[in-house]
């Protein structure tokens, strides 16, 4: 879990010590937004809290919008490749830039990352530059050969999406046949001992299959992560039909209490509105909310 700033002693700025400085892009962004903060003013805690970090900890990268399925609540409305997506050489240069900034981790999403033509070279470069990799995938493009090949890259973590514990529920959201293909992808990845999380968006229909989803994740030695439906992208169009009902949220709260190993990141801040603070649900998931 992320901790608040810890002050173990007063800073000891020894001569020659390299101190993190803001990346030029971060400085430019601050200047553009008018939120430029002097890092030389105030006490050390204020400098940290106001000045931010020298670089992101995790970068979430929608490497392509192309997707082989078109699930109905996709928050990035993915489907077709966007015309200005980075080509492979540009993507490799970006990996180098992020590594040079000392970013720790890249979380690849999309779209479906395995549709991106340069994904293998990008993963290879991330490995060379010692970047931690997470891939959010629908799992349908995983083959036995790919699952084996992916063992070359590390550290690498997978998040595979299932929006229901049955084909009926999942496929009504993610498309016909997707449940079985995603399950096969999970089996192939698990067979190669990849680190897995099953990611499921809570809807008023998947709510009834939480226990099933929990069992499915456990069968692959994976954790279950439940995240909230977001009214963004295609999620706007189906929000009224899919968002969980208030009574479901109440029951979901109890279900989470009974399943403390289920991950939520910061998806359910709003459940505290029911009056009961939930351990872990009221915490920011920054940097720890991926994979």
């Amino acid at each position: 879990m992320a901790e608040f700033v810890r002050f173990m002693e007063r800073p000891n700025r020894t001569a020659g010590a390299k101190v993190g400085t803001l990346h030029p892009l971060a400085l430019a962004a601050m200047q553009q937004t008018g939120e430029m903060v002097s890092q030389s003013k105030g006490r050390s805690s204020q400098r940290f809290l106001q000045g931010g970090l020298s670089a992101p900890i995790t970068v979430t990268w929608e490497i392509t919008a192309a997707c082989n399925i078109a699930y109905i609540h996709c928050l990035s409305a993915s489907g077709r490749r966007r015309p200005r997506e980075l080509n492979t050489e540009q993507a490799l240069a970006l990996v180098d830039e992020l590594a040079d900034m000392h970013v720790f981790q890249i979380h690849f999403g999309g779209g479906e990352p395995f549709i991106y033509p340069g994904i293998w070279r990008v993963l290879e470069q991330c490995t060379k530059r010692e970047l931690v990799m997470c891939i959010s995938t629908n799992g349908t493009l995983i083959t036995a050969e790919r699952a084996r090949r992916l063992k070359m890259f590390e550290p690498l973590y997978f998040q595979v999406s299932l929006d229901g514990g049955t084909p009926q529920t999942n496929d009504s959201i993610r498309g016909k046949g997707v449940f079985n293909r995603a399950m096969q992808g999970l089996e192939l990845l698990a067979a190669e001992n990849h680190s897995l999380t099953v990611n499921s968006v809570l809807t008023r229909y998947s709510f009834y299959e939480l226990d099933l989803l929990y069992e499915i994740a456990a069968s692959f030695n994976a954790k279950l992560r439940v995240t909230r439906l977001r009214p963004s992208g295609r999620g706007q169009e189906v929000w009224a039909d899919l968002h969980p009902m208030q009574e479901q949220y109440s029951e979901f709260t109890n279900w989470l209490m009974a399943h403390p190993d289920v991950l939520t990141a910061d998806s359910f801040f709003h459940l505290n509105a029911f009056g009961t603070r939930l351990a872990g649900l009221d915490l920011c998931g920054a940097a720890t909310a991926t994979c």
């Binding site: 608040f4 173990m8 002693e9 800073p11 999380t197 954790k223 720890t288 994979c291």
Partner: peptide
């Protein structure tokens, strides 16, 4: 993976 990550700020 998942809940095994951690982040600390050291001053």
């Amino acid at each position: 993976c998942a809940d095994r990550g951690a982040l600390s700020f050291i001053n």
